[in-house]
């Protein structure tokens, strides 16, 4: 073990703690939302995740290991909060592989930029569905009325559009 890299985070000063939180909070919060936490629960559990890190005897081995540690704590806290049993390891690996594919090395900023660009490529019904659902936050039934389809149709349409956007993002990131 490289002892020069070991930092007992508990002994950090306020500015150190603040820097640590700022560096990772968005990623932890997004991860919790991705797992299905509501905004408020994500706020709470993000706080709890950092407190766990700051209070536990934890050896810091750099940003990447820290991110993984924070994700594990956040996931466990989330499952406990929603009273669900621990996930099988294969599921955890799947979830985290998709997640790290999105966040890459910048916490997801590049993926979001690509997604923003991909949104501009949408047109017609796809663009309208995204606007109604994400911008105007209309319910599926309201969107269905505007588009002349049923609620299940709206659900399928949105899912198809998201698949198109995912493919577009992957294309842009690999370019």
């Amino acid at each position: 073990m490289d002892s020069s890299r070991v930092v007992v985070v508990q002994q950090r000063s306020d500015p150190d703690v603040a820097a640590l939180v700022r560096a990772h909070q968005a990623e932890v919060w997004r991860y919790l939302r991705y797992l299905g936490a509501s905004g408020e629960l994500a706020d709470d559990l993000t706080q709890e995740t950092f407190l766990t890190l700051l209070r536990a005897p934890y050896e810091d081995r750099g940003p990447e290991a820290r991110s993984g540690w924070l994700r594990t704590v956040a996931r466990n806290l989330f499952l406990k909060a929603v009273r669900k049993p621990p996930l099988p390891m294969t599921d955890v690996e799947t979830i985290d592989a998709i997640w790290t594919g999105f966040t890459r090395e910048d916490g997801g900023a590049e993926s979001l930029t690509a997604l923003r660009a991909c949104l501009l490529e949408l047109d017609g019904r796809a663009r309208q569905a995204i606007a109604l659902h994400y911008e105007q936050r209309k319910s599926r039934s309201a969107i269905g009325k505007e588009l002349g389809i049923g609620e299940d149709g709206v659900k399928s349409l949105l899912r198809r559009v998201r698949a198109v956007l995912r493919a577009c993002v992957e294309r842009r990131l690999s370019a």
Binding site: R30, R33, Y34, G36, I98, W99, F102, G108, S111, L112, L115, R116, L119, I130, Y134, R159, R162, A163, L165, R166
Partner: peptide, 12 residues
Amino acid sequence: QDQLADRALHEL
């Protein structure tokens, strides 16, 4: 994957 795309769109 779909859930992640959904979250990303909400964030945007």
